[in-house]
């Protein structure tokens, strides 16, 4: 089997969960499996990356990798590809990964496939199209390595019990690069969307931004997370980090509660893997009702407070 690289996104808090999902899949596609971890937290992440299947972790903690929007990372990765000739490089579909993958493609002249949900070989991948109504199997041709971007939560991460050797990666020379000059962050509250067992998600049907407080309250009661449709993110009601769907996050909770969301294919791609779906919408023809285990035709602003009251009364 050909060697496979996983571009493992890392933070000082550890590797992103999707890095471990990709490593788990990579073990069935190639040998050896190597992770490429660039930026602060890279070296510290090597132990975990090894435990999920990387026999080598190419690592460098230099902040230039996290501050240049994939420019330095793509050049380093291209250098590693040249030297080690993997058949496949796996990425997630995150914004940061897309920056690196797009540039790598220009440097290697390889084929690139995005939004994959599965691979059966280093040159065979599947992707859903038309909002998941159809899945196509795609043969990837042309020079190695094939570049495939996989949607998060496509695979379950399973440890291999392995350990990794850490190999240093030189910082590339190059310019002009973009630079991150400011970082504005708010402390996170509650579980991450991808890890929450319950996701309460809101759309235009909530009528105005302030009504998201209702969803925060319901999600808080259920120890869940709040998500949103693209329409309300674009309208500025909630930050981009809430967005679920094609251009946002993919979630697979035990229960997904869609409140005032019509169910455009763009959104459905990100949530149809939920175990159970509850939809509340005024419009009886909303496409979300075709997916819902329980659909409620009615006003979200009436129904959600009733649900909150019912939960409180059952808990006494």
């Amino acid at each position: 089997m050909p060697p496979v690289f996983v571009y493992a996104e890392v933070t000082p808090e550890g590797p992103r969960p999707v890095a471990l999902e990709l490593l788990t899949k990579a073990r069935s596609l190639g040998d050896p499996v190597a992770a490429v971890a660039l930026g602060p937290g890279a070296t510290a992440a090597a132990e975990t990356l090894g435990a999920y299947g990387a026999s080598t972790v190419f690592a460098n903690d230099d902040p230039v990798f996290s501050e240049t929007l994939g420019h330095a990372a793509a050049l380093s990765l291209a250098g590693l590809v040249e030297e080690h000739r993997p058949g496949l490089v796996l990425f997630s579909t995150s914004h940061d990964a897309r920056d690196v993958a797009g540039r790598l493609q220009a440097l290697t002249g390889s084929t690139l496939m995005s939004n994959a949900t599965d691979l059966s070989a280093t040159d065979r991948a599947q992707m859903p199209i038309f909002g998941g109504a159809v899945t196509v199997e795609v043969a990837l041709e042309g020079p190695d390595p094939k570049i495939v971007l996989v949607r998060p939560t496509s695979f379950a991460a399973e440890p291999s019990g392995g350990t990794a050797t850490v190999e240093p990666v030189p910082v590339p020379q190059g310019s002009p690069w973009p630079r991150r000059v400011e970082r504005h962050e708010e402390a996170a509250t509650g579980p991450r969307l991808e890890e929450a067992r319950v996701v309460v998600s809101g759309g235009r049907g909530l009528q105005e931004a302030s009504n998201f407080a209702l969803l925060e309250e319901l999600a808080g009661l259920l120890k869940g997370a709040v998500g949103a449709s693209r329409a309300v993110v674009d309208a500025g009601w909630v930050p981009y980090s809430y967005q679920i769907g094609q251009t946002g996050r993919t979630v697979k909770p035990e229960v997904y509660i869609a409140v005032g969301i019509s169910g455009a294919t763009q959104h459905v791609v990100g949530m149809k893997g939920a175990k159970r779906i509850v939809a509340i919408n005024k419009d009886p023809d909303a496409p979300i009702f075709r997916l819902a285990d329980l659909g409620v035709v009615g006003d979200a602003l009436t129904v959600v407070p009733q649900v909150i009251a019912e939960i409180r009364s059952r808990r006494g």
Partner: peptide, 11 residues
């Protein structure tokens, strides 16, 4: 929905 073409153009 590939989402990488502009970065490839830039490179």
């Amino acid at each position: 929905s590939t989402g990488t073409v502009p970065m490839t153009v830039a490179q």
